[in-house]
Write a protein that binds this DNA or RNA. Sequence first.
RNA 1: UCCUCGGUAGCUCAAUGGCAGAGCAUGCGGCUGUUAACCGCAGGGUUGCUGGUUCGAGUCCAGCCCGGGGAGCCA
Length: 497
Amino acid sequence: MTGITELNRFSDRQATLKGWVYNKRSGKAHIFIVLRDGSGLCQCIVGKDDVSDDVWLAAESLTQESSVELTGMVKADERSLGGYELHVTGIYIHQITSEYPITPKDHGVEFLMENRHLWLRSQRQWAIMRVRNEIIFAIHRFFQDRGFIQMDAPIFTGNAAEGTTTLFETAYFDEKAYLTQSGQLYGEAMAMAHGKIYTFGPTFRAEKSKTRRHLTEFWMIEPEMAFYDLEMNMNLAEQMLSYIVAEVLQKRKAELEIIGRDTTLLEQVSSPFPRISYTEAIDILTSDKTREMLEKMEGDRQAEKTALDEELKALNSEFGQAKKGRKFQIEGRTREIRARIEEIEEDFRNIPVWKKSALEKKWGDDFGGSDETILTMQFDKPLMVYGYPTAIKAFYMKRDPQNDEVAMGVDVLAPEGYGEIIGGGQREDNINLLLERIKEHDLPEEAFKWYLDLRKFGSVPHSGFGLGLERTVAWICGLKHVRETIPFPRMLGRLYP
RNA sequence: UCCUCGGUAGCUCAAUGGCAGAGCAUGCGGCUGUUAACCGCAGGGUUGCUGGUUCGAGUCCAGCCCGGGGAGCCA
């Protein structure tokens, strides 16, 4: 058995490919079978004069996603995708598939999500999963090369620790338990044992968020380091992101091309990243420049909509006389334009809200999704925002010794509107201050006894952060929605398949 | 929970309150080193559900169900 990716080593030699029929085109003298074997695609040709009647009939009977073994001679051919093709001499059929739901044409989101188990076989989804895999592997390499130990935080937790987010409740024998929303607190304990650790696991949030950035179950990578301050923490986050992007650009170029990712902005992702304080971020949001940018955006959208309306009209009048092939193109483009116009109309409704949110921002307010987008629009690289007001950050965040109102936390915002991909900071290492915070936040002291022990027995300055895997994949692949970044997304109203 | 857009053939979408249609997919026939192949013919419908207005409802009204993406919250 030969893999499609290794066909270059089999040129002018016999090979057997095992896989599934991705597409078929048939004629009088030739049948072209595009075979999918999991590693790639290969066009396989059956010539009527070259094979027995049995083989020809077998080839004719193949349908989309039928499982087969094709044997033949490997030939280099520029006309074929991948540069190599198989001249078939033998066919073994495992199963003839009938009525495979996902055709090589257009489908809507709802239909594709219902068929996610099959959608994963499609080229684009296949490429995204390979990029996801590369990102995961790059993360492990990055940390392992730097002496970090991967350790696992528990998924069942005994209490709704940080208070703010809604958690999934479940039963743990006779006790209540919650699915973890973060492994961080446990990460701190593990860092005190090993110095530098990272967790890599699923996290769960029962928030009823229906947006392109949210899943109820997602994967998070959380490094935690003893003797690291905020500055060192930011340096690490910056190096990690640069490394991941560089690795994907180098090793998954073909996949990014299948996805249609424009990589020009990704090529620029290298140290140093812009770093601004929360206070500077407020200044940017409330600046004239931001006001002008949003007003220009409104104008640009209006112009774009006018142009699209005209194009739509032109396409519509052309449609009647168009030939079939052209009709298909027109329909496709029409759908694109309609979708874009809907987005623009949504923008028209949103821009005034964004403007109000940004321009009226006061010190102490938290940032919304639109504020993050406005901030990142002014930079080409991931943006680091540090030093948030203590009131909007978690109880464990260390306060700036110079200013009690400021927490030493940092968020990293991805460019191109992808939002927060990293949240982290330096942790409070003084037991008395931590106890105060726990009381202020009205948290059950008893549940944090073990966590307080970390400050009781050899407390040290330490820091860490959490990286959201799916948002990172969405950003690097340039996807509109995180649901395509994970094999079986779990989100509000979606538990099947 | 709120705001907003939507639900018509297996799929993607049309249809001033007036005969429910097209493309793709499927089946059959033709043609071609084809590459979202192409050309012709055919089959395919409880217009999400319930009720209302009307001579007449896919279209208007009310309620419900399902989905899209936005707010809040967050990675």
